[in-house]
């Protein structure tokens, strides 16, 4: 899956300048970087939530994209209905509810969920849609460790079984090391490193990446 180079600016400030890059099908690619590095902007542009400069189309039209924003909105209905509103089947909804430990909460109104429960529901809802590229922006930030491990396992299984490509935006180096096959490292709106996670997350080339790993890995 190849993506052309693009830029994203707000006013005169360029917040992201990406060279052309590629993602491998069926693999998990972690996007890492400090706050303000451009991770969420990359997710939004690829998802089509915001246009790249000049209205450039970054993802080919044939590629279906699923996107879970950082602050996913719980629709005013029950947890189960939040999943079914996507048009996915009831069986798939029940499988996802069960996989993320949400079955006992299925008939509860989404607005009554805790932050972690809401994050699990949002992830389950995002997985309802069959798509080739799934972009998740900090999907486990509000989850406890147990739920995070459940979610990571589910994501890895989903990618392997369906051949979906997962772009996982995270600020957690540990999460990236646990789940990612590949990694992108962004620094101040620029892509500094890309490649297999084993290299980028353990033996990076750039000093900025090393500094990030030293800080977050300690």
């Amino acid at each position: 899956m190849n993506f052309p180079a693009f830029q994203k600016s707000y006013g005169r400030r360029t917040v992201l300048a990406m060279p052309d890059f590629a993602l491998e099908p069926g693999r998990v690619c972690a996007v890492l970087g400090a706050n303000g590095a451009g991770k969420s902007t990359l997710a939004k542009v690829l998802a089509g939530a915001v246009p790249a400069d000049g209205g450039q189309r970054v993802v080919p039209a044939r590629v279906t994209v699923g996107y879970l924003p950082q602050r996913s909105f719980p629709f005013r209905m029950t947890v189960r209905q939040n999943l079914l509103v996507t048009g996915g089947g009831r069986q798939r909804a029940e499988e996802l509810l069960s996989a993320l430990g949400l079955s006992p909460l299925a008939d509860r109104r989404a607005a009554l969920l805790s932050g972690g429960e809401l994050a699990r529901m949002s992830l389950a809802r995002a997985l309802m849609r069959p798509c080739r590229l799934l972009i998740l922006d900090e999907p486990t930030a509000a989850m406890d460790m147990e739920s995070t491990v459940l979610a990571e396992g589910l994501l890895q299984r989903t990618c392997r079984e369906t051949g979906r490509t997962l772009l996982l935006v995270t600020h957690s180096l540990q999460q990236a090391r646990r789940t990612a096959d590949d990694a992108l490292f962004l620094h101040r709106g620029r892509l500094l490193e890309q490649g297999p996670a084993g290299r980028v997350l353990y033996q990076p080339d750039r000093p900025e990446t090393k500094e990030f790993l030293d800080f977050y890995g300690s």
């Binding site: 699923g66 879970l68 924003p69 996913s72 909105f73 629709f75 996507t86 995002a126 849609r129």
Partner: peptide, 10 residues
């Protein structure tokens, strides 16, 4: 937020 979430869900 409704639109962004709904767009992500296609």
């Amino acid at each position: 937020p409704v639109r962004e979430t709904a767009r992500g869900l296609g």
